[in-house]
């Protein structure tokens, strides 16, 4: 797989993502958004950061930038896409995934380690885990509270579109373990298509040795594996 990690002005997890993917043996490259997607792109990451300074709403500007037309076309033709943090906000703003990420319940930027439980291991992104596995992953966001209309919330649950829920270290999904007030503790979801996913925690910061946790590596591995 040749992964395009799309850089916007204000992206700041782009290099980390490339480094983590390369560590896992997945060929990847930084792609400046104005340059469009390379023709041999077989996977897309929308990385974390503060694209366009989070103007208007986090991800709102990047979601409407010209490169997203190419991203959408690639996704339509089956190219897997992973949106991480700001990339998740861009994915929801751009309609690749349902719902919206908005201001944390605390109204503060939160940078900490959290636990998430694997809710559905039968996806490209979670196939190297077992359902119920508890992962320790870093979060770093001010607008990570997942909101979705009640009707679509039910659809997400009924169709097993939830990848991860915030939980405590023992895997209990509780309000106390919900760092940002996300509906139903949702930390990561699938889009309409099975090869599209977004999540607020940072797997690329939990892949390389020496960073405290490597629990996120298998998310990137699952994404990048054929």
């Amino acid at each position: 797989m040749t992964v395009a990690v799309v850089q916007f002005g204000g992206s700041n997890c782009d290099r980390d993502t490339v480094q983590a993917l390369e560590h896992l043996g997945a060929e990847s490259r930084l792609v400046w958004h104005e340059d469009g997607l390379p023709e041999d792109t077989t996977g897309i990451v929308l990385p974390g950061g503060f694209s366009y300074g989070d103007y208007l709403r986090a991800g709102a500007m990047a979601a409407r930038s010209p490169v997203m037309e190419a991203v959408r076309a690639a996704v339509e033709s089956g190219t897997p896409l992973l949106g991480i943090c700001n990339g998740a906000q861009i994915g929801c703003e751009g309609g690749l995934t349902p719902g919206a990420f908005t201001t944390n319940r605390s109204a503060r930027f939160q940078c900490e380690h959290v636990h998430v439980r694997v809710e559905n291991a039968n996806t490209r992104f979670t196939r190297h885990y077992e359902e119920g596995d508890v992962l320790e992953l870093p979060i770093a966001h001010g607008e990570g509270r997942f909101e979705i209309g009640a009707e679509r919330l039910e659809t997400l649950g009924a169709r097993d579109r939830v990848l991860f829920r915030y939980c405590d270290a023992d895997g209990n999904v509780t309000d106390d373990a919900n760092p940002n007030g996300s509906m139903d503790n949702m930390a990561g979801i699938l889009g309409e298509r099975d090869h599209v996913a977004v999540l607020m925690p940072h797997p690329e910061r939990a892949t390389l040795p020496g960073l405290g946790t490597t629990d996120g590596g298998n998310i990137l591995r699952g994404f990048a594996d054929p």
């Binding site: 208007l56 709403r57 709102a60 919206a100 979705i148």
Partner: peptide
Amino acid sequence: ERLLANPTI
């Protein structure tokens, strides 16, 4: 509809 508001919220 296209930009200023997000219809989800």
